[in-house]
Nucleic acid binder design. Structure first.
Length: 226
DNA sequence: AACGCTATCAACCGCTCTCGC
DNA sequence: AGCGAGAGCGGTTGATAGCGT
């Protein structure tokens, strides 16, 4: 007991607006990272982890709050099918959404739909389109590279790209699943694929490539089958 | 109005990973 | 190679709002 330095008791529970303000100002001044220092020097009686979490999930700029759009829901379902519970990876594909938010959303809204009983029904009732997707997922990536994508410009012309060039583009930019798919709005009025099912496995492969460092081995193929 | 139940989600906890020494 | 500190991740908890009875 004697001579032992007591650690200051850290505060827990919900953050107050004034605490948010202190943390926000501190990070804006000193930058992100070194959360131990933030915890000690900001004056907040909060642990480093707590500060990091609060900043990452609520205070950092460009955080999107509120309802998930249908596109976001679809993307979560799709990515979860590919990646499993790798929430940070999934959240990385949803601009402005955090891993915690995606995880919560999955557990409260989507997981119910995918409960074991529902899953059986889903598999048994696969539509032709879904089956085609699964089938395509097994085709080697290079088989797709010869296929073409058509994009209509605002001037009414139709541009055709090889998927190879699209994949190259996706590799060069830090591809988000829903953003680089679309060309710049000012250039194109609409986009359509000859067969978008055919295109999607490439996207899946890219996600898998990033997540697991591979995209075509048996392990990955198995993961596509629930 | 009061109570109990359920859904939601912010926050915590424990573990793993990464990096510097 | 081994160790420790800091950061990150995913699972879980708990407060509370909302709803039904």
């Amino acid at each position: 007991m004697e001579g032992k330095e007591l650690k200051p008791r850290m505060k827990k529970g919900f953050w107050k607006p004034e605490e948010d303000l202190i943390l926000k100002k501190y990070v804006e001044t000193h930058g992100e990272g070194n959360w131990t220092a933030v915890s000690k020097k900001s004056g907040l009686m909060r642990g480093a982890k707590s500060c990091r979490l609060r900043w990452k999930n609520y205070l950092r700029p460009n955080i999107k709050r509120g309802m998930m759009s249908d596109d976001e829901k679809d993307l979560i379902i799709r990515l979860h099918k590919l990646l499993g519970n790798r929430w940070s990876l999934i959240a990385g594909r949803l601009p402005g959404r955090t891993d915690n938010e995606v995880k919560n959303y999955w557990n409260t809204h989507l997981n119910k739909r995918n409960s074991p009983r529902d899953k059986t029904v889903h598999v048994n009732s696969q539509t032709e389109k879904e089956q085609q997707f699964l089938l395509n997922s097994h085709v080697k990536q290079q088989d797709h590279l010869e296929k073409q994508i058509s994009v209509s410009t605002k001037g009414g012309e139709i541009d055709t790209f090889t998927i190879d060039s699209w994949v190259q583009n996706l590799k060069n930019v830090d591809y988000g699943i829903n953003i680089p798919l679309l060309p710049p709005e000012e250039e194109y009025s609409s986009i359509f694929f000859h067969n978008d099912d055919m295109f999607m496995p490439i996207l899946d492969n890219l996600v898998l490539l990033e997540a697991f460092g591979t995209n075509g081995d048996e392990t990955m193929q198995e993961s596509l089958f629930f």
